[in-house]
Design a binder for these strands. Structure first.
Lengths: 338, 338
DNA sequence: GTGAAAGCGCTAACAA
DNA sequence: TTGTTAGCGCTTTCAC
């Protein structure tokens, strides 16, 4: 069952059928209507592979994420998929499981499918795989790499504003000893968040203590481990900022295990505002990074790149806002007792 | 850059290049090696659309899930993707967001891409969309629909065994008043779980109380609401089984909100064993449904259907096992006091 | 072992 | 407004 047969039944040419399917206005309404009826009757649908072969475009966007097990990403994918499907396109999702090598594989596979663009949210990325995308003139939009080029755009997560808010808020609550549990260094996304944290401290005239800077892995286990280290300190912090909510949840866990309470003994602030944040106990104060906004921005950047081909990419930015829940409170006069 | 050009450079025909790429053993090793080198040098990769068009197969499997926000599904997708990518195929994931209408859309889109098979984990499924798959001879494997046919297989979740275990365990712990929070009725998956629960109670000679049977929605909110109803009962249960872990977490929440404790006042058992189960507090006792096993079974069923085309589908089954953590304990002499 | 050639189903430029 | 036609890049007989 191909367009040819539909054409025969309808008494038109396959070109007309194609036009009808694509809603061309060069077809007489009557004819179009007639053809549409036949299509419906025969329950016909076109072969996408053939169109892609012909046109070189596939109406597929690729998304590469590092860890589908981190709720932030499914939530992003969901938002993104809604937008993409809305415009009759499709999503090819690849999860790299945090292996940098799998990024290359994924990109390669997407290139073979002639995707119309790639949203790359896995930040542990080397330059090589990106080049193959550029070379094949496939638009790429990255997250928080802060580099643009021809066909290469970036969506930065503007955390400095949020961090400022968070630090200011903590300061108002009487906190002066503020720790940070980040992600592996060397990854731009981690570096930027840490830098924003330091800057925010500075702006608030709060001294930075190196022993208060710890490294996690964006997962619960990492947050738990890093928090345990913090708890082992003689002079403990009274508040902890984290690079993402999972890290914050790990901290919560370590604090509980250590026999302390949140927000009684420690205030904890997450990052992302995944759905779970509102559900754990205590509900997490966090810096919200809106998934719908992020998805919209990625989509927009991709669309744009697809119109003006070869055009220079842009630097986009989405911001974060502080959402106050129950994991933060006034600092105790002395959190060190006990 | 197509096979033609590679062929020219290598001084062979495009047919030979194609053979080399597919590892055909009809090519002289020397020639093959030579061609491979050129391919690597030129960084060539074939156009999948062209192959699919020619062969009618795409090396893509489709997966349709109801709610990407429920960690069970990302965890399944991850396992499934690993297997699929291993065998040089790909995954097209569609999330229906619990809208039955989106299942049809998804299937249609997959049909247009000529997927080699569809794994359908969204259970709220009518017969119509399935038929279009069958008609197009695209293998389909469903979860817990318990119906098979030509090109249609099913993977049943054998929960009866697990339920028996759970009830037996609770009975040993002194529980006699056991409630169940399930999913919307009418969905086979919900019906089966409920039926297994009832059967298990019967086998353990524990009376079934209708007011102890509640309906959730496989999400935290539903579990919370249903548990609140249970708490409002004069004569409360002492243990609660749930249709999935999210429901169980909702119960935990309602119990905490109600001023009770787990497992002090109530024992709670989940279903699935999502990663979070081990992380919430208290860690959840649950019936584990192994994602890797489930993924393997789906893949196997799909592969099988793809070999013997038009063959009759099979009924597969994966089992569940009780994982005991901290949300269950001995029943109090009287849980009703207070 | 290797090459020539005929399409797979669709699109788009051109013709009518 | 509609039809004709030439491929898109690959696979796969069939012939050598």
């Amino acid at each position: 069952m191909g367009m040819r047969e539909i054409a025969k039944i309808a008494g038109v040419s396959s070109a007309t059928v194609s036009r009808v399917i694509h809603g061309s206005n060069l077809v007489k309404p009557d004819t179009a209507e007639h053809v549409r009826r036949i299509i419906a009757e025969m329950d016909f649908f076109p072969d996408n592979n053939a169109s892609s072969l012909k046109s070189g475009r596939s109406s597929i966007y690729g998304v590469i994420i590092p860890d589908i097990t981190n709720p932030f990403f499914p939530e992003f994918v969901k938002s993104f998929e809604n937008i993409v499907v809305e415009s009759n396109q499709e999503l090819l999702v690849a999860n790299t499981d945090l292996y940098a090598t799998r990024i290359q594989q994924s990109i390669r596979r997407m290139l073979m499918r002639k995707v119309d663009g790639v949203a790359l949210l896995a930040s542990e990325v080397e330059t090589e795989p990106i080049e193959s995308l550029i070379k094949n003139r496939t638009p790429l939009v990255t997250m928080d790499r802060r580099k643009v080029g021809p066909g290469l755009s970036d969506v930065a997560v503007n955390c400095s504003e949020g961090m400022e808010q968070a630090i200011r808020y903590l300061k108002e609550q009487g906190h002066r000893k503020i720790a940070y549990i980040g992600g592996r260094t060397g990854i731009t996304i981690s570096d930027h968040r840490l830098a924003s944290f330091k800057q925010a401290l500075k702006n608030a005239s709060i001294p930075l203590r190196t022993e208060f800077i710890r490294v996690g892995d964006y997962r619960i286990a990492g947050g738990e481990f890093a928090m345990a280290e913090l708890l082992a300190l003689q002079d403990k912090p009274t508040a902890i900022l984290t690079a993402n909510d999972l890290t914050a949840m790990g901290s919560l866990r370590a604090i509980r295990e250590g026999g302390y309470s949140v927000p009684g003994d420690f205030s904890v602030i997450g990052f992302d505002d995944i759905e779970m944040s509102d559900i754990v106990s205590p509900a997490l104060t966090t810096l919200r990074l809106s998934r719908p906004d992020l998805a919209k921005t990625f989509f927009h950047a991709l669309e744009r790149a697809n119109e003006g081909t070869g055009e220079m990419g842009r630097q986009y930015s989405v911001k974060t806002t502080l959402v106050i829940r129950n994991s933060t409170a006034r600092a105790k006069r002395s959190a060190e007792r006990r």
